[in-house]
Amino acid sequence: SKDTIRINGIDIDVKDLHEEWKRLVEEALKRGDEELAIELLERALKE
C-alpha cells in the first residue's frame, strides 16, 4: 500500500491511516467517487 493517495490531483499523506480506511478510500477512488473518498478521509483523520 502506498503512503499517499491522489484525490483531485492532490497527493494526501495517508501513511498514518489505518489500513482499513486506506482500502475504503482506494475503493471509492476506483469507482470514481472522489466525494466519498474525501468524506472517508476526513472521517479517518478524525479518529
Rank of each mutant, 00 (worst) to 15 (best):
S1V: 12
K2D: 10
K2I: 14
D3Q: 08
D3A: 09
D3P: 07
D3W: 00
D3N: 08
T4E: 05
T4N: 08
T4A: 07
T4H: 12
I5K: 04
I5M: 06
I5Q: 03
I5W: 01
I5N: 02
I5E: 02
I5L: 12
R6K: 11
I7E: 01
I7V: 10
N8T: 05
N8S: 09
N8C: 09
N8Q: 12
N8L: 08
G9R: 03
G9K: 04
G9Y: 03
G9D: 07
I10E: 11
I10G: 04
D11M: 09
D11N: 07
D11Q: 08
D11A: 09
D13L: 10
V14D: 02
V14P: 04
V14S: 05
K15Y: 09
K15W: 05
D16T: 12
D16R: 10
L17D: 01
L17R: 01
L17W: 08
H18E: 14
H18I: 10
H18M: 09
E19P: 15
E19T: 03
E20A: 08
E20H: 15
E20V: 05
W21E: 14
W21L: 15
W21Q: 14
W21P: 10
K22A: 09
R23F: 07
R23I: 10
R23G: 12
L24C: 07
L24V: 05
L24Y: 03
L24T: 02
L24H: 03
V25Y: 05
V25E: 00
V25I: 13
E26Q: 09
E26M: 14
E26C: 03
E26I: 13
E27D: 12
E27C: 08
L29M: 08
K30F: 10
K30A: 15
K30G: 13
R31F: 10
R31N: 10
G32C: 05
G32K: 03
D33R: 04
D33K: 05
D33F: 07
E34K: 13
E35Q: 15
L36Q: 09
L36M: 11
L36I: 05
A37P: 01
A37G: 02
A37R: 00
A37Y: 02
A37V: 07
I38A: 11
I38G: 10
I38F: 12
I38C: 12
E39S: 14
L40H: 02
L40P: 00
L41V: 09
L41M: 08
L41G: 01
L41N: 00
E42S: 06
R43H: 08
R43A: 07
A44Q: 03
A44S: 05
L45Y: 06
L45W: 06
L45M: 11
L45K: 13
L45E: 06
L45A: 13
K46Q: 11
K46Y: 03
E47K: 06
E47H: 06
E47N: 08
